[in-house]
Simulated assay, not measured.
Amino acid sequence: MPTRKKLPQYERRVVAFIDILGFKNFLGKGGDASFNTIYNALAELQDRFAKPMQGWSTGAKKALNINTQALQVSDCLIISRLAEEKGGVQSMLFDCAYAIHTLIRHGFLCRGAIKVGEMYHNGNMLFGEAYVRAYLAEESERLPIIKFDSELFDLARQYPAPSNEGFGSWEENFVRQNCKQLMTDTYYLDYFTDYDDRFGPGEGEASVHYHALRQIIVNGLALGKNASPYEKFRWAADQFNLSANRFQLPPI
């Protein structure tokens, strides 16, 4: 009898499900300008996430428990990593922040959720309860944020990067720096203040970037109070105003 091929199994993974807001309405505009904006935004995300493990040797991936997978389909980006990856939480939050700020530069906000649990993800094939929970959490969220549960901080402490071995509490505090509490045990990436820390060379560069964010919010509010997205843009405006002076920008 032929030998039956051994099937893979579920893994405990951290998965982020990210949705680009306003994507469908933007598609409806048609024309070259709309196409170019969408294409350039998605192409930049593809360049970043198409080969997420490129540059790592087999030995390094095994030693650090690295098995990052990413898939971009239409207006959705899905990223997952092994929960036991050393420094994996720090890397996941950086990846999500990168997606947020890339989309801001192209004129979009996004919304997403990060969950931990059983999942299979290899290339274009993914399934599992962690993915379903991330998808449903994103779908039910009204605010333009990427949110996650406090257990992510526990993972950061438990599996710090090799350079922080033995200092898990330091790594936990480090990843907390650019996160804000939404409610009990629920946090989100505070993209209104983190650009200097994660990407910008200084506040001058950050001011340019946050000017683009300001314009997205202003355009959203211009739709009027009766428009369905108004609430999320009003919330974003309030958050923006908390740090507008830091970047020498007028409040909304």
Rank of each mutant, 00 (worst) to 15 (best):
F153S: 06
D149N: 13
E118F: 06
S163P: 00
L155M: 09
E138G: 12
D149R: 12
T184P: 03
R111S: 05
E165G: 06
G117C: 02
Y188T: 12
H121I: 04
L126C: 05
Y131I: 05
K115R: 10
D149F: 01
N178Y: 13
Y187L: 05
E138F: 06
A130S: 08
N164T: 10
E139G: 14
P144T: 08
F127E: 13
V116R: 02
L143I: 09
M125H: 10
E138T: 15
Y188M: 13
F127M: 13
Y187S: 09
N173V: 03
I146V: 15
D185C: 08
F148A: 04
E172F: 04
K147D: 06
Q158F: 05
E118M: 09
F127V: 12
I146P: 00
A137I: 06
E172K: 12
I145E: 00
G166P: 11
S163E: 07
G117K: 02
I114W: 01
F127L: 15
F167G: 01
G112R: 00
A156Q: 05
N173G: 03
A134V: 14
D190F: 12
I145V: 15
G168D: 09
E151R: 14
A130M: 03
M125F: 14
E118P: 01
Y187D: 03
A161R: 09
V132W: 02
F153V: 13
P162I: 11
Y159C: 04
Q181P: 03
K180Y: 08
A137T: 15
G166I: 13
A137L: 14
K147C: 11
Y191C: 03
